[in-house]
């Protein structure tokens, strides 16, 4: 609408139109508005805060030592043991709490690596068409051609059964998603007028890519990161579930579900149920944040 307003003459004193919304709102105010308008995202953020507190608190918050066994084996949930106890008499609640740190760390580390490596590959492929692009494309296609979980299994099996290797395996299978998002975003803006203007302003090619084009890929990238975190948590737990990566007695959601699965038939449901619920909550949290997070990092959503 404002485009139809009569333009002031060049050089004429303009005061009326400037007061309309003075200076642009700051990033913080913008984030607050996005959260107010997206209650779902707010729920996501609250849950994330909860997860982070638990992850940082870890042992300090747990009522029992997660590794200490006792005589009270396979107890149903009670006031003393909220989530019951397992076959060795360890407190399931304490174990679920303590496992949060490890599971989140694996996911965050894996996604960070995937995001950085994937974005770099995608940016190069999107900006410099030609031989390099073809090489990167084929590389990504190769990764995508495998069933991803099987590929991750293979990587961990080949590299060795350690937590670091779970991180690398999870990172590798996620790289193509970031690369594709960033490549598309860079490609559509490579010849945009603002990119050409940046070249006129004296930016060498790498700066145009890094300073002008890459940040514009941020909004879709954050959605990808958020969804991916949930997925990575699931993937890490999945690897542990089948016996790769984290080894008992370390508390980890995937192992706990795997151990508890044997007892479901005999009626001890709490062993698998509570770590499974924790896993679900983590995935749910990251999925809820996605859209709101995108709106926060996108200045075009500011009014």
């Amino acid at each position: 609408m404002s485009a139809s307003a009569p333009e002031p003459l060049p050089g004429a004193r303009v005061s009326a139109s400037t007061s309309a919304s003075g200076s642009a709102p700051g990033a913080f105010a913008h984030a607050r508005r996005v959260l107010r308008d997206n209650p779902v995202t707010l729920v996501g953020f609250v849950l994330l805060a909860l997860l982070l507190v638990v992850a940082v608190g870890g042992e300090a918050l747990a009522p029992y030592d997660p590794l200490a066994s006792s005589d009270a084996v396979l107890q149903a949930p009670s006031f003393a043991h909220w989530f019951g106890t397992d076959a060795l008499g360890r407190d399931v609640f304490s174990r679920v709490l303590v496992a949060t740190r490890l599971d989140l760390s694996i996911a965050v580390a894996a996604v960070s690596i995937a995001c950085v490596v994937g974005s770099a590959l995608g940016a190069v492929a999107g900006y410099f068409p030609g031989a390099l692009e073809s090489v990167i494309d084929r590389l990504l296609d190769t990764i995508m051609a495998f069933p991803l979980f099987v590929l991750a299994m293979g990587i961990v099996a080949a590299l060795g059964n350690t937590v670091e290797n779970i991180v690398y395996a999870t990172a590798v299978i996620n790289v193509p998603f970031y690369a594709r998002v960033v490549r598309a975003e860079v490609r559509i803006r490579r010849d945009a007028a603002f990119a050409r203007a940046a070249r006129l302003a004296g930016n060498p090619e790498w700066r145009v890519l890094l300073v002008h084009l890459l940040p514009n890929a941020l909004p879709p990238l954050t959605v990808q990161v958020s969804l991916n975190l949930g997925w990575a948590v699931l993937n890490a737990a999945g690897l542990s579930f089948i016996g790769l990566g984290v080894r008992p007695p370390t508390p980890e959601w995937g192992i706990m579900v795997a151990e508890g699965a044997n007892y479901i038939v005999s009626g001890e449901w709490w062993l698998a149920m509570f770590p499974g619920a924790a896993l679900m909550l983590a995935v749910f949290t990251f999925n809820l944040m996605g859209d709101g997070l995108r709106d926060i990092v996108d200045p075009a959503k500011r009014t």
């Binding site: 945009a192 007028a193 603002f194 050409r196 203007a197 002008h212 940040p215 200045p299 075009a300």
Partner: peptide
């Protein structure tokens, strides 16, 4: 150079 304003002449960020 001055570009046509088709919406992408300025970096949106």
């Amino acid at each position: 150079m001055v570009f046509q304003d088709s919406g992408d002449s300025l970096n949106p960020r």
